[in-house]
């Protein structure tokens, strides 16, 4: 399940995926706001120089030009860091992309606390919230490079504005045996005691947590919820009805993110839910693993939260 041999960042999968997608469809373009190297666009640039557009450090115009190209039939992937796009250009995304229903793909790397040393300004922890509230927008958070590649290709085939959330840090692969379908969550591991729903890099942490818990006799069902919108409520509800308890975990503020999307979906169903994420704080500089520990997102911290909950239940 976890391939420790292959350490890769999801942004690397994006770089491969966009080349494969571009070979299939000549309308696919890549737009860069002076971060092409970080977004792993080198190969795209070399192979399709005439389909690579540099807009400079201008995220608002990045979104606006993308919208114009899309309204004319192109499929632009506008690329930057998640802390700049979709935030500095959110107004453009709302009106020029979503209200226009322009087929723009917003691919953003360096999402989450694992962005690490660059510090809080560069660790996007709010991007899922501000994209998933937009009508017509799809929101996809690939778990690893393998999934990012598939997600990029699948996303290029849809007509929806889409936010593709990517990470900087290399992690083991966890989706090599998974199929990828937009809007279809994947159950990576069956279990009956509780449902652990993760997205992005946190899928790896969730799987590790489930292995630790298994040794303690707690059977965890692990779901890779790569599509935040449209959310696969059916798979989530089915699992939750079986286990009665959901934990969600994401590299994002607990407010408005993936856990919130799950909360909206299960509201009124009588299911216990705990949302694990960054709790109304900015991050700080540090290594990815230190930060995961500090902000309560490492496998060990997830295990602690779940055991604490189990103890509470047993004491009732």
């Amino acid at each position: 399940m976890i391939n420790y041999e292959k350490l890769k960042a999801s942004r690397e999968g994006f770089g491969i995926g966009i080349v494969k997608a571009a070979l299939e469809n000549k309308n696919i373009l890549a737009l860069s706001a002076d971060l092409s190297e970080s977004l792993k666009l080198e190969e795209f640039k070399n192979r399709f120089p005439e389909r690579y557009i540099e807009v400079g450090v201008a995220e608002q115009n990045l979104a606006a030009v993308g919208a114009g190209l899309a309204l004319e039939g192109k499929i632009p992937f506008i690329t930057s860091f998640a802390s700049f796009s979709p935030s500095i250009n959110w107004g453009q995304i709302r009106v020029s992309i979503c209200y226009n229903n322009a087929n723009v793909k917003i691919a953003s790397s360096h999402a989450g606390i694992t962005t690490g040393e660059d510090g809080a300004t560069h660790q996007a922890l709010e991007d899922i919230a501000i994209t998933r509230v937009l009508p017509k927008m799809n929101v996809i958070v690939p778990a690893d490079a393998t999934e990012a590649e598939k997600a990029t290709i699948e996303t290029s085939k849809t007509k929806n504005p889409t936010y593709l959330r990517l990470g900087r840090e290399k992690f083991p692969q966890v989706t090599e045996e998974s199929e990828f379908r937009i809007g279809k969550a994947n159950i990576l591991k069956k279990g009956s005691d509780l449902t652990l729903i993760a997205c992005g890099n946190m899928v790896f942490q969730a799987l590790k947590a489930s292995e630790i818990l298994e040794k303690k006799g707690i059977e965890v069902e692990v779901i890779n919820n790569h599509t935040i919108k449209p959310l696969d409520s059916k798979t989530i509800l089915q699992s939750a009805k079986k286990t009665g308890t959901i934990f969600t975990v994401e590299e994002h503020q607990t407010a408005g993110g993936m856990g919130s999307a799950v909360a909206e979906a299960i509201s009124g169903e009588g299911i216990h839910l705990e949302i694990i994420g960054v709790e109304d704080k900015f991050g700080q500089s540090g290594s990815a693993s230190e930060l995961l520990e500090k902000y309560g997102l490492s496998a060990n911290k997830i295990v602690e939260r779940i055991i604490k909950h189990k103890k509470l239940i047993q004491n009732v």
């Binding site: 115009n61 606006a64 309204l71 192109k74 020029s96």
Partner: peptide, 29 residues
């Protein structure tokens, strides 16, 4: 609102959106 009426090429309201969209359209052409 684009799509609400024939002849409307883009939605607009918040200022500053149009020139960038026009650039995208011109580049595509």
């Amino acid at each position: 609102e684009r799509g609400s009426l024939p002849g409307i090429e883009t939605s607009a309201g918040p200022l500053g959106l149009g020139l960038g969209i026009s650039c995208g359209m011109a580049l595509k052409a």
